[in-house]
Amino acid sequence: MSTVLAVLRKDLRLELRTFETLPAMALFSLSTFVIFHFGFNQAAIAGQLAAGVLTVTLLFAALLGAGRLFVAEREQGGFDAFLLAPVDRNALLVAKAVAMFIFLAVLEVIAVPAFGLLLLGPPLGPRLPGLIAVLALADLGLAVIGTFVSAIAIQTRARDLIAPIIGLPLLIPALIATARAAGPLLAAHGSGSPPTKWIAILALYDVVFALIAYAVFDYLLED
């Protein structure tokens, strides 16, 4: 536990001092909203279309951030130092996933209001509690899969290519569930609560992949 906290504190401090990943993710999201506006040629969108735009934007921003997750470890010898330390290796997975989750939460604090302002037709306010619940579950999946894919891709020659091509198909079920759960929320006369079925699928996805990633992460870290 203390290892997790130590690595997490290191990552957050690194981000606070360099401001490298989060501003990039936020700017990427804003530019994507602008592109969607011109792509659809619509001033305001609602319902399933809005949910899709939001989900896809956050998904790509997450992949962008995940690509940076292990770069410092790789370039500065952090992996070797971590392996030399007599600590549980899964602590690295947990710490990185928590860091990724925090990045995504901060990103959404910026990107969701911007989305409400720029693209969303119906007012954001009453939909916010439901949306936060859906996005929290989605972030969990994005953080776990993002960390796992990033840990695989960092050791490959073409790491910028490998991370998205593995990550996207792996995240499709989460994307389906998130978009479907958020669709009714963002509809013009939507109800305030997201559909239970999709929340359950999203939660199932999170749990299953968190367990799998925890089970296999050891093997990515030994040499």
């Binding site: 796992f148 050791q155 020659r157 593995i166 799998i212």
Partner: peptide, 22 residues
């Protein structure tokens, strides 16, 4: 593509196996 972009044979086998399991 994943296998192909890892050079060390031992690591290639290990990473490919992890991917296959997931």
């Amino acid at each position: 593509p994943l296998r192909f972009s890892i050079e060390d044979p031992e690591r290639q086998a290990r990473y490919a196996s992890v991917f296959a399991v997931v």
